[in-house]
C-alpha cells in the first residue's frame, strides 16, 4: 500500500486527469462531476487532502497566483503524467482481462 505501483483512488485518478489543464479546487470538483456525467462527486475535504498529498509528492504543482485571485490553481507535473499513464495502463489491463474471459465464455 502507498507505493507508486498500487492502484490510484478514483478521486486521485480524476484529479490528475482534470489537471492536464490548470484548475482551482472548485474547478476540479465541477470538472470531475462533468467528466463522469455526475457519477463522481468529490467531497471538499477529500479533495483538499488529495491535493496536499499530491503536491508533497510532486505529482501536481500550484501555479503562481494572479494578484486578483485568491483561488490557487494547480496543474499536473511530468511525474504526475507518468503516474497517470501507468494507471491508465493498469485499468486497460483490468478491462482487457475481463473482456477476454467474458468474451470467451460467450463465444
Amino acid at each position: 500500500m502507498g507505493t507508486e505501483s498500487s492502484a490510484l483512488t478514483e478521486a486521485v485518478y480524476y484529479i490528475l486527469l482534470s489537471l492536464l489543464e490548470p484548475l482551482h479546487g472548485y474547478g476540479i470538483m465541477q470538472n470531475v462531476e462533468a467528466m463522469s456525467a455526475g457519477r463522481v462527486h468529490l467531497a471538499a475535504g477529500t479533495l483538499y487532502g488529495a491535493i496536499n498529498t499530491m503536491l508533497e509528492r510532486d505529482w501536481i504543482r500550484s501555479l503562481p497566483g494572479e494578484t486578483d485571485s485568491r483561488r490557487k490553481q494547480y496543474q499536473i507535473t511530468e511525474k504526475g503524467k507518468a503516474i497517470l499513464a501507468a494507471e491508465i495502463k493498469r485499468l486497460e489491463e483490468l478491462i482487457h482481462n475481463a473482456s477476454r474471459i467474458l468474451g470467451g465464455k460467450q463465444g
Binding site: 478521486a11 465541477q30 462531476e33 467531497a43 475535504g45 477529500t46 487532502g49
Partner: peptide
C-alpha cells in the same frame, strides 16, 4: 451550488 460533502471516501 452543488452537492456538499466533506468526506467521500473510506480513508478520509
Amino acid at each position: 451550488l452543488g452537492e456538499f460533502d466533506l468526506y467521500s471516501d473510506y480513508d478520509c
